[in-house]
Design a protein around this nucleic acid. Structure first.
Length: 705
RNA sequence: GGGCGCUUAGCUUAGUGGUUAGAGCGACUGCUUUACAUGCAGUAGGUCGGGGGUUCAAAUCCCUCAGCGCCCACCA
């Protein structure tokens, strides 16, 4: 509470607008904060810092509602921590997002009828650079509009020069450990993007397909030992969803315990059309209950077939190339070379039918892999790529979470993380796209998976591999707030990277925020016309309204059906607060203010008691990431207890000190949620010498007494 | 095939064992009450998805069924 001041220049009604006006407030206030230097923490070695690194938005486009929610959450945590007097750092930045950004630039070029190949690498790189510059700036501008109190002096980009060094250092480190290797195996290949993808960059979508039952002739000379079940048959039937891959079959596999086929294991069958001889083999991985219990094995085009192939030393015959066309496999009398997969499939089916080798066709709905960036079907094919061995990296990452050193909020995500981490395959890190970090090996012109660089974010932004003061003081960071869809792609990889390179976890708490859907429960997407632009909301209702509305509906649920009504309620609330302040300020001028808290009436006692409860519950809620609950308590107290109750009553029985005390305290509690209106009011109070601290953003946070 | 989440008033939802289940928006009825009509005072509207159980007491805990959504998985 401020000390008594004798010389106050009283404001009149006209000095305070009747309604809160965000547009006349926000930019002015933000500039004031920025100039004051409060966003940039000072290192105080005696105090434990509070650090957040922003999940760097992709420079593919502007921010969406998920970003608005996540950055509101982070700013709430940051502002509260700062007000508590803790050295508080929020590192901002952007991600080059290799494949995603390359794709959006390619889409732009396509509008002009051009491809990246038309431009060539150099010109294309310049186009990408222009895009990155433009959208990088847009994103930073949006974060500022939202009111994010990031330390802009520490702003980073995943391809700035220091970051390139960090990526190199990480790669070399893995190499020295012997964890980087080049291998030829079946990987996910996007025909449109022309690159390999890791397993988690593939989306499985349900597709209505067919199951074709095809007869493979058993070699006549081997038919002597037939048993009861196959006595009358001279063929074995396999079921497949991809008949065209039979061009590359290397075996027919059955389960070793499958009595039906016991007697013919080891015999030879002839692939129809291809006329090549392949063995019938027994492999544990075959499910006797599916289809006929016999499966054609195509090691070059299916990861599990590849493994069967390795176990049985089968040849891998690549029949589909990187453009999604049939290779120069020329069975006698046929030539499918250069034909698209579906085209070849049709011809093969027709030929099988004419040879009476197609037993039946079933409708079959199954999961088919698609590219997570361009949405096109993935081909699984044999390819030489670079991998990181995961076993040694996963172990400490599992332990850190199991021992509770890293906690997930909500807790249930811990299990999701661990399940994935315990069943990791090696990480395919090479990409054949043009935009990204070059693999630091001479003569290799591939780039790295964009997530290889994102995985280093918490350490790289603080200076690693250099031993900087920032790294020593602000690492490990405190909270990582993010969306659930990048739990594996990003969060898991930051955990093992952080532990490997520093021996310390990258963050203490992973907060997984709700996903925002539209009111029908559908994904918000610009392309579907279901997106809501947070900037438009800020323009219409103000940043505070947008932030408060988002915080208010974030009650810890998994999904949010976004309803603009919440933001409208936020706007009204901002206005309500403004008017409470207006009333209070005018009240202060009419009465002598002693700045001494004296509880005279029952109303005084009641309101200060409720306020104390409010402080306790807001603190408790925020300690536990219960943003919605905290917002609800603030709303209910301020509107109903304070305005409808105490303020009305105070018109009859005056106690301006209490009025001011409650006002000032609620402004502090509200500031992380609604920084602009609260600071704007604070400035009026400061001018009136009704508060002592110059800025609310750095005023002392209330604790329950 | 595994796992997770959700189902409360017309809409979006709060509420994790305890008096007549709250709010915002919408609807309706009054109010130019010396801050706010972005307001104030009220009214109507809910068998808390169905069924079963535990308990003195269940929207809340357990089981089960149904619907919606998400994630993982080498049934080709």
């Amino acid at each position: 509470m401020a000390t008594q001041s004798v010389s106050r220049k009283f404001l009149t009604m006209n000095d305070l607008e009747k309604n809160y006006n965000p547009k006349r407030t926000e930019d002015k206030i933000y500039e004031m904060w920025e100039k004051s230097g409060v966003f940039e923490p000072k290192i105080e070695s005696s105090k434990k810092p509070f650090t957040i690194v922003i999940p760097p938005p992709n420079v593919t486009g502007s921010l969406h509602m998920g970003h608005a929610l996540n950055n509101t959450i982070q700013d709430i945590l940051i502002r509260r921590s700062r007000m508590k007097g803790v050295p508080t750092l929020w590192v901002p930045g952007t991600d080059h997002a290799g494949i995603a950004t390359q794709n959006v630039v390619e889409k732009e070029l396509a509008k002009l009828g051009k491809s990246r190949q038309d431009l060539g690498r150099e010109k294309f790189a310049r186009e990408v650079e222009k895009w990155v510059q433009k959208y990088g700036d847009i994103i930073i501008g949006q974060l500022k509009k939202l009111g994010c109190s990031c330390d802009w002096s520490r702003q980073r980009y995943t391809m700035d020069s220091d970051y390139v060094e960090a990526v190199k250092a990480a790669f070399l480190h893995y190499q020295e450990k012997g964890w980087i290797y080049q291998g030829e195996r079946v990987i996910n290949w996007c025909i449109r993007c022309q690159t390999a993808l890791s397993d988690i960059e593939v989306e499985h979508r349900q597709v209505d397909g067919k199951l074709w039952y095809i007869r493979y002739q058993i070699q006549k000379s081997n038919l002597k030992n037939q048993n009861e079940n196959v006595k009358l048959k001279n063929y074995i039937t396999v079921a497949t969803t991809r008949p065209e891959t039979m061009l590359g079959d290397a075996a027919v596999a059955v389960n070793p315990d499958d009595k039906r086929y016991e007697s013919i294991i080891g015999q030879t069958v002839i692939i129809p059309i291809v006329n090549r001889q392949i063995p019938i083999i027994a492999d544990q991985s075959v499910d006797p209950k599916f289809g006929t219990g016999a499966v054609k094995v195509t090691p070059a085009h299916d990861p599990s077939d590849f493994e069967i192939g390795e176990r049985h030393k089968l040849a891998s015959i690549k029949v589909i190339d990187e453009t999604g066309k049939i290779t120069q496999i020329k069975p006698q009398g046929f030539d499918f070379t250069g034909q698209k997969v579906l085209e070849a499939r049709e011809k093969i089916i027709a030929e099988l039918e004419s040879q009476d080798l197609l037993e039946k066709i079933q409708d079959y709905t199954h999961q088919v892999p698609h590219c997570y960036r361009c949405g096109k079907k993935i081909e699984q094919l044999l390819s030489k790529q670079w991998f990181v061995k995961m076993k040694k990296l996963a172990e400490p990452a599992i332990r850190a979470v199991e021992k509770g050193e890293i906690k997930f909020v909500p807790e249930r995500w811990e299990k999701v993380y661990l399940d994935w981490m315990k069943n990791l395959r090696d990480w395919c890190i090479s990409r054949q796209i043009w935009f990204g970090h070059k693999i630091p090996i001479d003569g290799i012109d591939d780039v790295l998976d964009t997530w290889f660089s994102s995985a280093l974010w918490p350490l790289a932004v603080l200076g690693w591999p250099k031993k900087t003061d920032d790294l020593a003081y602000f690492y490990p960071t405190t909270v990582l707030s993010t969306a659930r869809d990048i739990l594996y792609l990003w969060v898991a990889r930051m955990i093992f990277s952080g532990l490997e390179f520093t021996g310390q976890k990258p963050f203490e708490i992973v907060y997984i925020h709700p996903t925002i859907f539209n009111i029908e429960g559908k994904r918000m997407a610009k392309s579907l016309g279901t997106g809501v632009d947070p900037l438009e909301l800020i323009d219409k209702y103000g940043a505070d309204a947008t932030r408060f509305g988002l915080a208010y509906i974030n009650t810890g649920v998994q999904d949010i059906r976004f309803d603009e009504k919440a933001i409208i309620a936020g706007r009204k609330f901002a206005n309500k607060i403004w008017n409470i302040a207006r009333f209070t300020i005018l009240q202060m001028q009419n009465d002598i203010v002693k700045f001494k808290i004296e509880l005279k009436t029952d109303d005084d006692k009641k309101i200060t008691q409720s306020l104390n409860h409010l402080i306790a519950s807001v603190n408790n809620d925020l300690d536990n990431f219960r943003f919605g609950q905290a917002a609800h308590s603030l709303y209910d107290f301020i509107w109903h207890d304070f305005a409808d109750g105490y303020l009305e009553a105070s018109k009859k029985e005056k106690n301006p000190e209490i009025l001011l005390y409650v006002m000032v305290t609620t402004l502090k509690l509200l500031h992380p949620f609604m920084p602009y209106v609260s600071e704007e009011i604070w400035q009026k109070l400061y001018e009136q010498k009704l508060v002592a601290e110059k800025l609310l953003i750095s005023a002392k946070w209330p604790e329950a007494g």
